[in-house]
Amino acid sequence: MVEDSPLSVDSPGQGESLLIAGPPMTGKYDLLFRLLGSSIDQGIVISTGDTAEDVRADFAEIGDLDPAAVGVVDCVSKQRGVNTQPADRTRYVSSPKNVTEIGMKFTDLFEEYREYEPPVGVGIHSLSELLMYLDPEDVYQFVRVLTKQAESEGWSTVAVLGSTMHDEQTLHTMYEPFDTVVNTRENDGSRELRVRDRSRAATAWTTF
């Protein structure tokens, strides 16, 4: 984690969407929380890899956001056999493979968070977990609907994708719904990123 280093990428603006894609251990997870945390007051995270408790702790530590402001669609606790109890701002899904249930639980929190003034944001960690169970076209449709739903309220969206886990066709399919793609890599012990969006060529690789 390189929390004190300056970011070489702007946080998404209201209604904008951003995908962070890179190999393992290149800072994707930290970037998600740092970018969202610096631009929102309230947020919803769809978590396919960590419990709601862990997500909120990471938001407080990395994203500098009050954990009480974070709603979580928790896709892992039930799958791991955790005894889940109804909780404020937490919705539990049976497993990451049930994208219909994920969408329903997200919409439930979406309606709740519409009561808050922007800036509100949405995080998805990660698309790769969904792609382990689902066809890329199904994940694409899910993400496209979700980003449009967030955009309709002026909310930003940041998602994460493990680039080495998928073929080029799948990667480009996942890039399509997002306004901006941030690629990450490790180079001689440093984490680097570059930024690509629809209106310009990719930036040079810079340390973050």
Rank of each mutant, 00 (worst) to 15 (best):
V2H: 14
V2T: 10
D10Y: 14
D10W: 13
D10E: 13
P24Q: 11
T26D: 05
Y29Q: 12
Y29P: 01
L31S: 09
L35E: 05
I40E: 00
S47C: 04
S47Y: 03
E53A: 07
D58F: 09
A60V: 03
I62C: 04
L65P: 02
P67H: 05
A68M: 08
G71V: 07
V72E: 03
S77R: 09
K78L: 15
Y92P: 13
E101I: 00
M104E: 00
F106L: 11
T107V: 02
F110P: 05
E111V: 14
E111H: 15
Y113L: 09
Y116G: 01
E117S: 14
V120Q: 03
G121I: 02
G121D: 04
H125S: 10
L130D: 03
L131F: 07
Y133C: 06
D135I: 09
P136V: 08
Y140R: 00
Y140A: 03
Y140F: 15
R144C: 04
E153P: 01
W155K: 10
W155L: 01
W155E: 00
S156A: 13
A159D: 00
V160A: 12
T164R: 15
D167F: 07
Q169M: 11
F178E: 13
F178I: 08
F178Y: 11
V181W: 12
V182F: 12
N183Y: 09
N187E: 07
S190D: 15
R191A: 13
R191D: 11
R198S: 09
